[in-house]
Design a protein around this nucleic acid. Structure first.
Lengths: 116, 116
DNA sequence: CCTAGCCATCGATCGATGTCAGTATCTACC
DNA sequence: GGTAGATACTGACATCGATCGATGGCTAGG
């Protein structure tokens, strides 16, 4: 299953017995954020004005090679957590809060109601 | 870094720039739930009365070999998401809602307040 | 078009991890 | 203590994935 397909399946884990397909989809989505580099990317981008940043401002603070950063950005984008937009020479990545919220909601306990 | 150490670092990802150590700790915690088998284990256990179940009732519905299930239960336990307790011949695993909530809170956006 | 700068892709490497068969350990019961 | 059942551990295998150097493609400006 592709990451894009996976990101759409975000039924809460703890409300009903997870089927194989739903579990695989959710696992794919969580795998996207289960990496130190990608978590730092999300964190750095979220901290920028407008929750967006261009690649040139991410490589240095992450301390990873440019191809590695590009790879991580791709994974996050395919998971729906980031959105790409080209502006001239630069490529900007923007946080997609709805997708973050969906992942967050997947961890809600049965007693918890959805929250913004 | 061990999974046990990792589970204690759960600062929100999107509120401040994540340092290397915090990022690694959080990634370790998310890795624990970034697996279809482990997500289904959490789901199945959460659906049982008292949010607990013995291994003998988990192997069959998961469709994985008993050593594999045991391995996944170990990973989840070391991540603090499950607690073990022996009752006679059987080993019971219980969901730890606080830890689930901590992971969930790590995905809170800057505008979101902590919720139960 | 030619250059310079930014970013993505490719290919290779290597450690991490999911899986299982086999086996060991532990508990209860007789 | 010997047996039976439940669970954990070991070792091996195959696959996945993070990383990087090299390279290719794209854009802006001259």
């Amino acid at each position: 299953m592709s990451i894009k397909q996976a990101a759409r399946r975000c039924a809460p884990v703890l409300h009903a017995r997870l089927g194989r397909d739903d579990a695989e989809a959710l696992a794919t989505a969580f795998k996207a954020i289960a990496d130190p580099g990608r978590l730092r990317l999300l964190s750095f981008i979220a901290g920028q004005p407008g929750a967006e940043a261009c690649v040139c401002n991410l490589v240095r603070p992450l301390g990873l090679a440019q191809p590695t950063v590009s790879h991580h950005l791709r994974v996050l984008t395919e998971a729906g957590l980031l959105a790409r937009e080209r502006r001239g020479t630069w490529m900007f990545y923007r946080l997609v809060p709805e997708r973050v919220g969906a992942l967050r909601q997947a961890l809600a306990l049965p007693s918890e109601k959805p929250s913004a």
